[in-house]
Simulated scan of single mutants.
Amino acid sequence: MFSKTKKTERIDPEQREQYEYARARIKQKKRLMQHFIVFLVGSVLLIIINPVLGVGKEFFIQNWFVWAILIWVFLFLIHVFNVFITNKFMGKEWETRQLEKLKAQQSARITELKKQAVQEVTVAEVKAARPDEFPDTDSLKKNNPSNPTAENEL
């Protein structure tokens, strides 16, 4: 209780991320298995309800339970596709690649903006250092005959 040595194992962030990803995948697969079990039980119940108990004989479609089961199979196949196929194409590796790609684009844009800012500051410093070499842009606008607003300003 009052020992001087505390043994705590720390998990580095990469291992923690892998652990969280593994937990999420296990949870996906567990929900898929639950869906499969509910599908089996529900299908058996639908088969029992219609022919055995006679529920739904007044419907337009005689064997409606078959269509209900087919729709449910379709939904289950979408779930399987999402868990096993989509996750392989758009899994953790895909996310990481997309993140790196966006980071590279952002850093390229930031570098471009920095260059532009440095260039603008340099031009402003040169103009400030030698005002006689760079005429005032306002006076150029007023003397320019192609500028229609120059006449209104005079």
Rank of each mutant, 00 (worst) to 15 (best):
V73F: 10
A117I: 08
V126W: 05
V83W: 01
V80D: 00
V83T: 12
I85S: 03
S146K: 11
K115P: 00
N82Y: 13
F76R: 00
E133S: 11
A128M: 06
A128P: 00
R109L: 14
A104C: 04
T96M: 06
T86A: 07
L113V: 01
R109N: 08
D136N: 15
K103P: 01
W67M: 01
S146V: 07
L140M: 15
N143A: 14
R97M: 11
T137Y: 05
K101F: 11
F134I: 10
K115G: 13
Q98F: 03
W72I: 00
L140Q: 15
V73Y: 06
V73G: 06
A129N: 09
K141F: 09
L75K: 06
V126F: 04
V73E: 06
F89N: 11
E93R: 12
V118Y: 09
V123M: 08
R109K: 15
K127E: 10
E95W: 07
N87H: 13
L70P: 00
A124F: 07
K115W: 04
V123C: 01
A68F: 04
V80G: 04
E93L: 07
K114A: 08
V80C: 09
F134N: 06
L140Y: 05
Q105F: 07
V118M: 12
V118N: 12
E125S: 04
L99I: 02
K101Y: 14
Q106G: 07
F134G: 04
A108D: 14
K88N: 09
V126K: 11
Q98I: 02
L75F: 15
W72E: 02
K127V: 05
S107T: 15
T137I: 13
E120A: 14
I69L: 05
S146G: 07
E93Q: 15
K101D: 10
W72N: 08
N144M: 02
F74W: 12
Q119Y: 08
K142V: 14
L102G: 06
L70K: 00
Q106I: 13
S146W: 10
V121D: 07
K115T: 09
E100R: 15
L113T: 02
K114E: 15
S139C: 02
L70V: 11
F76P: 02
V73H: 05
I85Y: 11
F81N: 11
T111G: 10
F76D: 04
A104Y: 06
W94I: 01
A108M: 08
E120P: 01
P135R: 10
L102H: 12
E133G: 01
I110G: 00
V80A: 12
G91E: 04
T111W: 03
P145E: 00
Q116I: 03
E93Y: 08
